[in-house]
Design a binder for these strands. Structure first.
Lengths: 194, 194
DNA sequence: TCCGTTATGTCAGTTACTGACGTATAAGCG
DNA sequence: CGCTTATACGTCAGTAACTGACATAACGGA
């Protein structure tokens, strides 16, 4: 009795999160997830590429929102400025999604296999940001470097935000970018060309 | 007829690289790898945690070399300076290892599953660098940010080095660090705190 | 009501990976 | 040289992630 398609997908995602929380990632089988969602194991793999992917559904939407924000940033901003603008614009989206992303973070923290997947998702985000910067006229490899540095800075700011939610994400971002500059304030070339 | 232990490990690593090159990652089974190395499939998994890990043997040595170099950097260097010093000190190691790392890069470029593993290896390197910086007195989260940015800059410099091997890695690194600063030369706070 | 599309169920099969147990080899010690 | 012990390895059985092929049931539109 096939329902709507999207409904099964949501049930599968929910069941995945629940079971990973209850028994842990390794101790839950895809068959159990499917059973709780009321479908077959085969259906699970029709919706998700593998066991891990069910936890990261909806990432493409976030990725697109971010890269669109980079494109819509004021034209006079330098690469880092455009990234800061983009990260600041998704604050509401992040806050709204907390009820799902928070328990998910708990599971991920316990599971190396899921941490590995987080890294590839992050790499996908970086690639999207890099592409957006390129469309703003930034050279390819420089765009990639900027996107990586920007993402690292964002992660730093987000973790500070979690510690101190009273202060807005935008403010944490601004602080982080300032700290970033102070990291290499007086770096010349030490043992560079011996 | 058990030989030396380390010998089997090296044969397995070599067989893995060869087969991944010949047939691709997905089309080669761990049983085939073991057969070419002259051992059993079970032995493969005694030496390596999974099918992917055989390609990344010896990474811990490189990781330790890097973090040791950070600790041995001149004490008056700021975080980024210490990282630049460390990266510059492994140039010879990288050059010597090329005959293995180059074909490996070819395989990785074709294989998403291996790219994912590269990301976790890189994350391990970043964690080690971050730890070394912390032992130099840098605060935890700041050390992590610096390590991430430093690693991104190193990747950038290494890719430039591959394009232009005539120039030393150290010189590429110095250039990269300069470009890094120009990325956010005049970044104030655009839509930060609304 | 008929028909094509889509989501699902069923089944068989491959393969990565693990645990338990036995065995052979190399190393140390009498 | 014989004995013991630890270490690498082989063998076997088993689990579970994932895939392809095929059948079927719901759903939307003509």
């Amino acid at each position: 009795m096939p329902r709507s398609g999207e409904e099964a997908r949501r049930r599968l995602q929910q069941a995945t999160l629940e079971l990973f929380l209850e028994r842990g990632y390794d101790a839950t089988t895809t068959a159990e997830i499917a059973a709780r969602a009321g479908v077959t194991e085969r259906t699970f793999f029709r919706h998700f590429l593998d066991k891990r992917e069910a936890l990261f559904d909806g990432e493409e939407a976030f990725r697109d929102a971010l890269s669109n924000a980079v494109l819509e940033a004021p034209a006079d901003l330098d690469p880092m400025g455009a990234l800061l603008f983009a990260f600041g614009s998704v604050e509401k989206t992040l806050a709204d999604n907390r009820s799902f992303s928070e328990p998910r973070a708990v599971v991920i923290a316990r599971t190396p296999a899921l941490q590995e997947r987080v890294l590839t998702k992050t790499a996908g985000l970086i690639a999207a940001l890099s592409g957006a910067l390129r469309r703003r006229g930034v050279e390819g490899q420089v765009a990639n470097l900027a996107a990586q540095v920007g993402m690292a800075t964002f992660s730093y700011a987000a973790s500070r935000w979690a510690e101190e939610p009273a202060l807005a994400l935008g403010a944490h971002l601004a602080r982080a970018f300032e700290e970033l500059q102070s990291l290499s304030s007086s770096t010349s070339r030490p043992g560079a060309d011996r």
